[in-house]
């Protein structure tokens, strides 16, 4: 459906996107994940033909964006990060303009617009000015715009940014249901979102792909060890030494004090050895009761951090990366 090969974009000396290759199957929802400034928007702009690439090809349904831009553009619905809406039009006027722009056949125009409005649930605001709608509704109008013309492929750039939690959940549901009929590429810097919605994830950092896999496989492969969190009442040093002595334990992070003499330890153990039983008996022998014991899987979040902060001089908190996305400006 979509084939991307060696896609590269340089802005002078700045390498925004470097040699990206992946493909998306028909009917698949692909998550495009990366911190701000990783090159997500640039890549999407190249896929949709807004920006020309420095190198590499994008093929959508067999058409090359460089050679048949019109054929490709007909088949893609694009929702950019900022919904491309005209604030001085009503929802209805806006969608008929988009139909006009995308050369939708006149005979089906009306029914298509009302279908699309039904899908994204904006029928009741169709007579209102887009400029007077809330952010969540504008986002839906933007999504409606992408659906006009019945494109086979949808490219959605951070469709949930700036929405409240309820709206985010609704938009995610919407995307999931759209995935039944459309092939979707969908970018985000929020991990739960990608794992909730997508079947496959492309993680990109600094313009390069660092991983492509299903969310489940990603967390499994990264988990070379099984991790437990244990709360034990007893002196810190003595307990952690005893834990290290248990067979199969790889490492013990020093305990953090919970209250009084209770400490919480993070224990990594070999995958094939269950250390919970020996740990219990070891503690029983010393007379320090275990108050809580639970296994902690490595979340996609940890993986993402691991992948995207690898080989960086400074630790970067993904929630506060100051570098902005390579924007349209």
């Amino acid at each position: 459906m979509i084939e991307i090969q060696n896609l590269t974009k340089h802005y002078g000396p700045i390498k925004a996107v470097e040699n990206i290759s992946f493909s998306v199957e028909k009917g698949e929802i692909l998550g495009f994940l990366g911190p701000n400034g990783a090159g997500k928007t640039t890549t999407m702009n190249m896929i949709t033909g807004y920006l020309p690439s420095t190198k590499g090809t994008v093929k959508v349904c067999g058409y090359d964006i460089g050679q048949d831009p019109k054929e490709v553009k007909k088949r893609i619905g694009y929702l950019p990060e900022i919904p491309p809406i005209y604030t001085d039009m009503t929802v209805n006027e806006y969608l008929s303009f988009v139909s006009d722009l995308k050369k939708v056949d006149k005979s089906i125009r009306k029914s298509q617009i009302s279908d699309v409005m039904e899908i994204v649930k904006i029928t009741h605001v169709q007579k209102r000015l887009v400029g007077n709608l809330s952010k969540g509704y504008r986002q839906r109008v933007g999504l409606a715009q992408a659906l006009i013309g019945g494109p086979e492929v949808l490219v959605l750039d951070e469709p949930t940014v700036g929405l409240d939690p309820n709206q985010i959940i609704e938009i995610r549901k919407l995307i999931k249901s759209l995935g039944k009929e459309h092939t979707i590429i969908f970018s985000s810097h929020i991990l739960q979102e990608v794992s909730a919605v997508c079947e496959r994830v492309v993680i990109i950092n600094k313009g390069e792909i660092v991983a492509i896999d299903t969310p489940d496989n990603l967390s499994n492969n990264m988990n070379k060890a099984t991790r437990f969190s244990i709360k034990i009442a007893g002196p810190n040093n003595e307990v952690s030494d005893a834990l290290k002595g248990v067979e199969g334990v790889l490492s013990v992070e020093p305990g953090t004090n919970n209250y009084e003499d209770v400490f919480e330890y993070m224990v990594d153990s070999q995958k094939d050895i269950d250390v919970r039983r020996p740990a219990f008996f070891a503690m029983a022998k010393l007379g320090y009761p275990i108050l809580e014991l639970k296994s902690v899987g490595m979340s996609l979040e940890d993986i993402f951090r691991k992948l995207t902060t690898k080989e960086q001089e400074a630790e970067i908190d993904i929630n506060s990366v100051p570098v902005e996305e390579q924007e349209v400006e």
């Binding site: 702009n45 949709t48 807004y50 950019p80 919904p83 491309p84 809406i85 722009l101 349209v328």
Partner: peptide, 15 residues
Amino acid sequence: ERKNGTEVLLMTSPV
């Protein structure tokens, strides 16, 4: 169009 980001819509439509 540039300021409002609607240029993207025009440029990615078959016009």
